[in-house]
């Protein structure tokens, strides 16, 4: 087996004079080149961008007199349109009868489709407005009531008091049955607020529902003293849960 260390040593030549000069020159050339590169990269970099700014010089001065309105900018408004000749003028008699302008009729042959639709809608609205003066339980879709009625607060109080005692038996009346049950019960209220004589004036048709209404009044027993007008009341017990 050949000696590896001996073979390696035989390939290493001793350094001669000619070879050391060439190497020194090459090393020097590389260092000079690198130095020149670094110089041009950093020392000769472009100058920083300077944003030109104008100097602002302020002087403190005393306030003078306010400028006259004539010199201030004005909003120029267009001239008001003139009133049409048939508009009631302030100088006219306000109680004088105004000659009604004849409205178009559905029967008119020259009406457009849109006009006919608008007239039909107006007729429907007119019907909706013809509701009873006292309103309905579900209210008017047009919201015609403009003010509350005295006594509402006491009615709310009675409602809350009786409703808290109104229990319908879940095992004896199903939810679907309950939704269709309404009973009217007449009650008396004493000056001290004692509820008495609950009487079914209109049965729901379900005895357990009617019983629950009577029991609710009896269980309530007493409410705060009522206003003078509340001697008797008609309570409508509605199982349809409109409030939900």
């Amino acid at each position: 087996m050949p000696d590896v260390s001996t073979a390696a040593q035989s390939r290493i030549r001793p350094l001669g004079r000619g070879s050391s000069f060439g190497g020194l020159f090459a090393t020097l050339l590389i260092h000079v080149s690198l130095g020149a590169l670094i110089y041009f990269a950093h020392v000769k970099s472009p100058p920083p961008i300077e944003v030109p700014r104008d100097l602002i010089v302020t002087k403190l001065v005393a306030l003078g007199k306010p400028r006259e309105k004539f010199w201030l900018p004005r909003i120029v408004q267009p001239p008001r349109p003139k009133a049409p000749p048939d508009v009631l003028k302030l100088s006219d008699d306000p109680n004088a009868p105004v000659a009604p302008k004849e409205a178009p009729k559905l029967e008119d042959a020259d009406l457009s489709k849109e006009m006919r639709r608008a007239l039909k809608r107006a007729q429907m609205l007119a019907h909706a407005l013809e509701e009873p003066a006292e309103g309905s339980l579900t209210g008017s879709p047009l919201g015609t009531s403009s003010q509350g009625v005295a006594g509402d607060a006491y009615a709310t109080l009675i409602d809350a008091a009786i409703r808290s005692h109104w229990v319908t038996p879940v095992g004896l009346i199903t939810d679907s049955e309950l939704a269709g049950l309404v009973a009217k019960v007449r009650i008396s209220i004493s000056e001290e607020g004692a509820l008495s004589n609950p009487t079914v004036k209109q049965s729901s048709g379900n005895p357990y529902f009617d019983d629950s209404c009577i029991q609710a009044v009896k269980a309530t027993g007493k409410v705060p003293p009522p206003p003078a007008k509340y001697k008797h009341l008609l309570l409508t017990f509605d199982g349809s849960k409109l409030g939900r």
Binding site: V167, H232, L234, L235, T236, K241
Partner: peptide, 29 residues
């Protein structure tokens, strides 16, 4: 005002009315 001699139905209609909804649900006690 409610008339003493009026029929019962008319008397009921003249009374102040309150509608109570949303009953509680529980077992029969």
């Amino acid at each position: 005002p409610a008339r003493a001699q009026a029929p019962a139905a008319a008397e009921v209609e003249d009374l102040p009315q309150i509608t109570i909804t949303d009953p509680n649900r529980d077992l029969f006690r």
